[in-house]
Simulated scan of single mutants.
Amino acid sequence: MPVLVIAEHDNQALKTATLNAVAAAAQLGGEIHVLVAGSQCATVCEQAAQVAGVARVLAVDAPHYAHALAENLAALIVKVGGPYSHIVAPATTTAKNVMPRVAALLDVAQISDIVAVQSADTFVRPIYAGNVLATVRSADAVKVVTVRTTAFAAAAPQGASAAIEALEAAAEVRGARFVSQQLTRSERPDLTSAQRVISGGRGMGSAENFALLDELADKLGAAVGASRAAVDAGFVPNDYQVGQTGKVIAPQLYIAVGISGAIQHLAGMKDSKVIVAINKDEEAPIFQVADYWIVGDLFKVLPELSGELDKLQQN
C-alpha cells in the first residue's frame, strides 16, 4: 500500500522537514504520495513533485487551509487517508498539533517522534528525554507516524517528476478560526535547519544580554536559540526554545552559553556534530556532552571570541 506524507510549508515554499519525512517514508517500502494542503500553494506542489522518491502529489487548495489549523487539516487527512497504510509527518510544532487529532479520528495509536524504521510495523522512538530508545510495534491498520527530522537525512529536493493531482477540499470545520499570528522576523538561518546554532540560557541574565549572542551569531552565520529557562524568564520568544519541549535540532556546530544542561535541553541538541559549552560552573552537566568547553564568565568570554573572529575575518 502507498504511504502518505503530510507536507509542511508556508504556502510559498516546502519546508526542509518534509524532506526528512519523505526519507523516513522511503524506508516503509510503499509508493510515496505527498499531501499539500494550503491556499494558493501551487509553487509548493511543484516543489514537492520534484522531491526524490515522490510518486504523486495530492494538491488541495482552499482558503481554510492557509494556516494549517489542526481541525481543518486533520479532517482533510482523514478524508484522503483511506487508501494508505501509513500517514507520516515531520515531528514539528504543526504536526504535533495536527497528527494526534488524526490518530484520534482514525481510532489508532500515534507513533511519535521515531528515529528509526525497523519494518513497516516496527519503529524506534526515544523516551525519558532520549535516555532510552523504545522499539514499538503497531498492529493498527493505519500507522500514524511523526518523524524526528534530525534522525533521517533529507531526501534530495530534486530528482523526481511526480504527477500533481488536484483534490476537493473537505468542508471547513466550524468552531475554529484563524485570528492572528505574531512572527519573529530574522535574516538569520531558521533554527531547525541551521548548520550553526548559538544558544543562551538563564546565565545570560537578561533579554538585553542576548545581544552578545546576536553579534556572535551574525559573524558565524548562525541561528540563535535558547534554553527553556531563558524562555520562561522572558529573555526571548518561545520559538527560540531548544529542547524536549521546544525544537529538536542537530546542527554541525552547537554553542551553549550559560546553559547548565538540564535533561530536557540535552534531548533537543545532543545529536549536534560538535558541541561547545561556555559556563562558569565547571560541574555543569552540559560539559558531559560537550566536545569543547570553556569554564569562565560568559560576559568576558563572548567579547574575546568575537574579537578573535574579527581577526580571522581580517586575515
Rank of each mutant, 00 (worst) to 15 (best):
V231R: 03
Y84T: 03
A141M: 12
H64D: 11
A141K: 15
W293F: 14
G221R: 06
G296A: 12
D214N: 11
S119Y: 06
H33A: 12
V80Q: 12
G205Y: 08
L312H: 05
V136N: 01
G296S: 13
A217D: 02
V236F: 10
L19Q: 11
V57Q: 04
T146M: 10
R177C: 13
L73A: 10
V276G: 12
A226L: 06
R137Q: 14
G29K: 00
I249G: 07
P303D: 07
F123S: 02
R174W: 00
H33N: 12
Q241H: 13
E208T: 10
T122A: 04
T150S: 15
S138W: 11
V57L: 03
A290E: 08
P285H: 02
F152A: 05
S138Y: 09
V115L: 04
A55I: 01
K311Y: 03
I77L: 08
D61F: 11
A25E: 08
D113V: 05
N131I: 08
A160G: 13
V108I: 10
Q27K: 15
V274S: 06
E31I: 01
S119K: 01
Q195N: 13
A156G: 02
G200R: 05
A211M: 00
G261H: 05
P63W: 01
A233P: 05
T92L: 01
D232L: 03
Y254H: 04
A194F: 09
L28R: 01
F299D: 04
L133M: 15
A75G: 12
A109K: 13
A155Y: 06
L133K: 12
A129D: 12
A229Y: 11
A262H: 03
D239N: 15
A151I: 09
A37N: 03
G130A: 06
K247F: 03
V115G: 01
S119E: 03
A68T: 10
V98M: 01
D239E: 14
G38Y: 06
Y240D: 05
S180M: 10
L266F: 07
K311E: 14
R228N: 03
Q195G: 14
A284R: 00
V142K: 14
I275M: 13
D291C: 05
I111N: 05
A233E: 11
L167T: 11
A171T: 13
T94L: 13
G225D: 08
L253E: 07
V224D: 04
R185Y: 07
D113P: 08
V236L: 09
P63S: 11
A151R: 06
A233D: 13
G175A: 07
G200E: 07
V144F: 09
A277I: 11
S39Y: 15
R101Q: 12
G175E: 08
V276D: 10
Y254C: 02
Q264D: 14
R228L: 12
L302A: 07
A37G: 11
A7K: 01
C45V: 13
V117S: 00
L302M: 13
L105H: 06
P90D: 01
L220E: 08
Q40Y: 05
D310W: 00
E46Q: 15
P83H: 02
L212P: 02
V78W: 11
N97F: 02
V80S: 09
A155S: 15
A156E: 13
L28V: 08
S119I: 06
A267K: 01
T135W: 03
S119M: 05
L309T: 03
T245D: 07
N97A: 09
T150R: 01
P237K: 02
